[in-house]
Structures are given as structure tokens and as C-alpha cells.
């Protein structure tokens, strides 16, 4: 076998003149297409490499012209100072100035993780419940209610931003609610203004449903074979039981995928937390990075610190990408066809 392979390829190599199937023009365009693909991958990955390369250089070195593909004096000081592990002297060396703006990475990381996890878990679970009702149960007005949910897809977030802010400030239009009544909530420390500047306030609008999640899961549940459930129903199983023991096990992979998608979306959210979570203790990563950059001067900002911060800020998403990349690709293709 090992002998036949080379002979084959030699035979193929000498064949082209007698093979009119693939004209030169087409082979050239294939070569061109491969070049374009390589270029695409380069264009996609280069900015990340450059961020890393910048983060490994001190700010003074950067402005002194150390801008080759590989840093001349690589250093981990920038990462250390973003993590709050560097001494003031080291900060000065790495940033080139005494005060380079502050940014509590670990606090922002913690906030983002709590927010994104709560949203992903809550939204997927509660949307799955709704999707079960829409795909399996018959009740008056089902199609109308589902259509109403879908119209929610069309409403731009800024439209509900202002009314939702009023809600989070405890103003329910007809009545007012204060913060003291909520002390039982997890991650909640009352400062008097209901949910403003609290983690539950950032989480709330996305916690119980989004039209997209209900739609996505309903679409998937409709595709699950019903014979197993019907047998269980005839045996007298309750819907709660069927949901738990039949649907959940089958749908777990899709729910995880949707959860990952929701997690990333929640991690990337900027506008809503910018409005309701400006206090340091509740800022997620995106808002903290935005504020950090707005503290930078127009000339000679602290690029090495910023790039270390952005890389560390994107790190959780990059990890998710490495673990779930394949699944995310599949689910986005799924949402494209449906």
C-alpha cells in the first residue's frame, strides 16, 4: 500500500497535459481562493496577536519604537498590574507614569461572571419551560401569545432602556417600590433605590426570557419525536414529569449551546449595565474597560496596560470559544436556516 501511493501521485503529476478537465484558469482561481482564505485567517487572528505583543511591552518601550513582530524586552508587568499584583514602582516602569488610570480587574471579572452565569442559567431554563408549553401543550390563544412574544424581537433595546431604567429605580408607573423590601435577594445590597446599581438589577431584564431563546428552543422541541412522551402521558405522567425526564435529557446539548450563546451575549452587553451599573462594585468588564479607556489622555495613552486589560477581559470568552467553538458554529447555522 505504501508503495502504490507514491506511484499514484507520480502518475497524477504527469497526467495534467492529457487531462482537459481542470483548465489552467480554474486552477489559478483555486490557488487565488486558498490565498484569500489564508488572508482571511490572518486578518481575523492578527489583531489578537498584536494585542498580546503590545501587552508584553512596557509603555515607554512602545513609544520608543519597539514595534516589531516580536517584542524586544518582553515583560509580564502589564498583566500583573491589571491584576493588581504590581508594586507602585513596577506600575511606573510599565506604564511610564505615576497614575495610569485605575481598573479593578478582579472585581469586574467577578461581576461579569455572576451576571452572565445568572442570565444564561435563568434565561435558558425559564425559556425552556415556555417553549415546552408552546410546542407541546394546547391552550386558548397559544399562537397569538407566541406571535406577541416574537414581536419583542423587533423592539430595539434602546426603546425599552429608559422605561426599564425607571422600573429598576422602583417606579412601576402606578406604584413605587423601595429597596428595603428586597433584602432577601442574592448579591443584593440595598442602597435605597430599588435595583439601581445592584447585580440583580443588571440581570433582571434578561433573566426570565428573551423572545429569541423561547423561539430557538420551541423550534428545537418541535423536532423531538413525541412517541415517548405520548406513551408516558397515557401512563399518567404529569407534564412537569415529562419535561424533567423526557424533554430535558434529550434537549440538554441544545440548551447548553443556547446557554453558551446567551452567556457570551450577556458578557458583551454594554448599554444596559452602562446605565444601571455605574458603581465600581457592580460594573461588569465591558463598562469597566470603557471607563478605563475614557480616563486615558488623547496623547500617549497607556496602550500596554489597555491591551493587557482587553486581553484579560476577553479571556473568558476566548476560553468558551476554545471549549464550545464547534457547538457555537453549529447553533448559529441552525438559527440561520430556521
Amino acid at each position: 500500500m505504501t508503495v502504490t501511493l507514491p506511484t499514484d501521485s507520480i502518475g497524477a503529476a504527469s497526467a495534467p497535459p492529457s487531462k482537459p478537465g481542470i483548465p489552467l484558469r480554474q486552477r489559478m482561481s483555486r490557488g487565488l481562493a486558498w490565498t484569500m482564505l489564508a488572508l482571511l485567517i490572518l486578518v481575523t487572528l492578527f489583531p489578537f496577536y498584536w494585542a498580546l505583543r503590545t501587552a508584553l511591552t512596557t509603555n515607554p518601550d512602545l513609544f520608543a519604537g519597539d514595534n516589531g513582530l516580536i517584542p524586544q524586552n518582553p515583560t509580564d508587568l502589564n498583566f500583573l498590574r491589571v491584576l493588581g499584583q504590581a508594586t507602585p514602582e513596577e506600575v511606573q516602569i510599565a506604564s511610564g507614569r505615576e497614575n495610569s488610570g485605575s481598573f479593578d480587574y478582579l472585581q469586574a471579572l467577578k461581576n461579569s461572571v455572576i451576571i452572565a452565569t445568572a442570565i444564561a442559567v435563568g434565561q435558558v431554563f425559564f425559556s425552556a419551560l415556555a417553549a415546552y408549553a408552546f410546542s407541546r401543550l394546547r391552550f386558548a390563544g397559544r399562537e397569538k401569545l407566541f406571535f406577541l412574544y416574537l414581536t419583542g424581537l423587533m423592539i430595539p433595546p434602546i426603546f425599552t432602556l429608559i422605561p426599564n431604567l425607571l422600573l429598576v429605580r422602583g417606579d412601576f408607573w402606578l406604584f413605587q417600590v423601595t429597596g428595603e423590601s428586597l433584602n432577601w435577594l442574592p448579591f443584593y445590597e440595598s442602597e435605597g433605590v430599588f435595583l439601581l446599581n445592584t447585580l440583580p438589577g443588571v440581570i433582571a431584564p434578561f433573566f426570565l426570557m428573551t423572545p429569541f431563546a423561547v423561539f430557538f428552543l420551541r423550534q428545537f422541541f418541535l423536532g423531538i419525536n413525541r412517541s415517548l412522551e405520548e406513551a408516558a402521558l397515557i401512563d399518567g405522567a404529569s407534564h412537569a414529569r415529562i419535561f424533567r425526564s423526557v424533554i430535558l435529557p434529550i434537549a440538554t446539548p441544545q440548551m447548553i449551546t443556547l446557554g453558551v450563546l446567551t452567556y457570551v451575549t450577556a458578557w458583551n452587553e454594554y448599554l444596559w449595565p452602562l446605565v444601571v451599573a455605574r458603581a465600581d462594585e457592580v460594573q461588569p468588564m465591558t463598562v469597566a474597560l470603557g471607563i478605563f479607556s475614557s480616563q486615558q489622555p488623547g496623547t500617549a495613552p497607556d496602550w500596554s496596560g489597555l491591551m493587557a486589560g482587553t486581553l484579560l477581559g476577553a479571556l473568558p470568552v476566548i476560553l468558551i470559544f476554545l471549549i464550545f467553538g464547534r457547538r457555537l458554529v453549529d447553533s448559529i447555522q441552525f438559527s440561520g436556516i430556521k
Partner: peptide, 23 residues
């Protein structure tokens, strides 16, 4: 290839923008 082309979409707008302000 498909996973690589998806990568930028997963990175927050804020971070992508900061990256390109520098680039």
C-alpha cells in the same frame, strides 16, 4: 476555519473597538 471566522463576533464590541483604536 468556521470557528476562526466566528471568533471576532464573540469578543465584546468595547474590546474590539479598543483593539482597533490602537491598531
Amino acid at each position: 476555519v468556521r470557528a476562526v471566522v466566528l471568533l471576532p463576533y464573540l469578543i465584546p464590541n468595547v474590546i474590539v473597538t479598543l483593539l482597533f483604536v490602537w491598531l
